[in-house]
Nucleic acid binder design. Structure first.
Length: 417
RNA sequence: GUGGGUGUAGCUCAGUUGGUUAGAGCGCCAGGUUGUGGCCCUGGAGGCCGUGGGUUCGAGUCCCACUACUCACCCCA
């Protein structure tokens, strides 16, 4: 039985990794201007962190975590999202005592969820994400969303829509939940089975149901933005003002609820229509209670996660051309052992000077060496044999044109000019 | 966890109403004059036909189970 990669995981082979590097480089170059520093936290944490942070009753914590006991009987969990670990690090490292706000990002961080894989959904995926701690103004919400859009645009992705919502805070959300329950309680007959179950536990979820009868009810249901407290309503209004000030278009979508308990006030998703059913490329929002929840001071936070795999799918769908890496500059064909020694010295010298170079290591015929050089797309090929060694001259052949020029064998750095 | 689709060579796929040693193209390796790529020609390697049962004289082909991949629900990035 062949051993295969675990279900829901993907290898990234050399013929594709340049795409990831392109995205990563672009993200770094854009975020550089935003005053964010990179943070790298462990891919596993104590399980309790996620139970406290994400919420005990969420699907993620209840059925999607990779949790196990280590040899010291500690309950460990592979991180199912990025924010909790960064918050833990923020508190533990003492950054809480530094100047605020603190702005951090993580890039291509592996994320693990035990889900059933499908298009755009894996058991291990990778996220780019940002977190801003200690900024309560809606300017921070606006900044992270603008940052996400800026990065997407810089990657050539434009056919996306921004959906925003406010889900209130611990002061106003209970009132809305009650209103929802009252509304649905009078209409139980039209609800589907699962929605009847959701009614008590998480009424917000009913708004998202795809059943025809449920979604018809949802259209007439109370809207959360009508129930926001003064502070939350003001925050939401301020966010919209920032958007219109810089010309960001959005749709207010009361159906956006998010499945992580820590969100307050602003929540948003950036959605693509082109990559199948899992269209959310970027999602996030504000989490003003989380830092305190995890044992830090009472301090607001806002951030997002962006799925790298989905991002690449969107780029592919949009036909974005990603530049391929430079092919090998020089390949050395050799005949005989003395030529190999000489070639080895030459590739060392070329590489030391920053010129990519390689030589035959398979012990092949000259013809096969040329074929190989051709297949890997080498720009130049130079052949070394007895005659060349004796004369200290060799022909450097440009493969695309077939044009050859004579070079001095002992001076490899003069070959490529 | 639930449902649909699909599993034959590294890849894309053929394989007739079940019938003898399982095929093609591409790719890989090697040759086609002794030191030269792309085109062409020749040869080679590489498959327990996803796994396990069953029906049958005989199964890649029919039946069942399992498994993997895939799409979708749920949920999310």
């Amino acid at each position: 039985m062949k051993i295969k990669a675990p279900r829901g995981t993907k290898d990234l082979c050399p013929d594709k990794s340049y795409r990831w590097q392109y995205v990563e480089n672009k993200i770094r170059s854009v975020i550089h201007a935003y005053n964010y520093g990179e943070v790298r936290t462990p891919i596993f944490e104590y399980t309790e962190l996620f139970q406290r942070g994400i919420g005990d009753t969420t699907d993620v914590v209840q059925k999607e975590m990779y949790t196990f006991l280590d040899k010291g009987e500690r309950s460990i969990t592979l991180r199912p999202e990025g924010t909790a670990g960064v918050v833990r690090c923020f508190i533990e490292s003492g950054l809480v005592a530094g100047p605020q706000p603190t702005k951090m990002y993580y890039l291509s961080a592996p994320i693990f969820r035990y889900e059933n894989p499908q298009a755009g959904r894996l058991r291990q995926h990778h996220q780019f994400g940002v977190e801003v701690f200690g900024a309560k103004d809606a300017a921070a919400d606006a900044e992270v969303i603008e940052l996400a859009l800026h990065i997407l645009h810089s990657l050539g992705v434009n056919n996306l829509s921004l959906h925003i919502n406010s889900i209130g805070c611990p002061h106003c959300r209970p009132r809305y939940n009650q209103a929802l329950k009252d509304y649905y309680a009078q209409r139980k007959g039209a609800l589907c089975k699962t929605c009847l179950e959701r009614l008590e536990r998480n009424p917000l979820r009913l708004l998202d149901c795809k059943e025809e009868s449920c979604s018809r009810l949802a259209r007439e249901a109370p809207v959360i933005t009508d129930y926001l407290c003064e502070e939350c309503a003001g925050h939401f209004a301020a966010l919209k003002k920032y958007f219109s000030a810089v010309g960001i278009s959005y749709t207010v979508d009361p159906k956006i609820v998010r499945g992580l308990d820590y969100y307050t006030k602003t929540v948003f998703e950036i959605i693509s229509e082109d990559i199948g059913a899992q269209g959310t490329v970027c999602g996030g929002g504000r989490y003003d209670g989380l830092i305190e929840q995890i044992g830090g001071p009472s301090m607001p936070g806002v951030g997002f996660g962006m799925g790298i795999e989905r991002l690449l799918m969107v780029m592919e769908g949009a036909g974005v051309q990603i530049p391929r890496p430079e092919p090998l500059q020089v390949f050395l064909c050799t005949i005989g052992q003395p030529a190999k020694l000489l070639a080895f010295c030459a590739v060392c010298a070329l590489r030391a000077a920053g010129v990519s170079a390689d030589m035959d290591q398979a012990g092949r015929s000259i013809k096969a060496q040329f074929k190989y050089a051709d297949k890997i797309g080498a720009r130049f090929v130079l052949t070394i044999g007895g005659d060349e060694i004796e004369a200290d001259k060799a022909k450097l052949r440009e493969m695309a044109t077939g044009v050859e020029k004579e070079v001095t064998l002992s001076k490899p750095l003069e070959w490529i000019k």
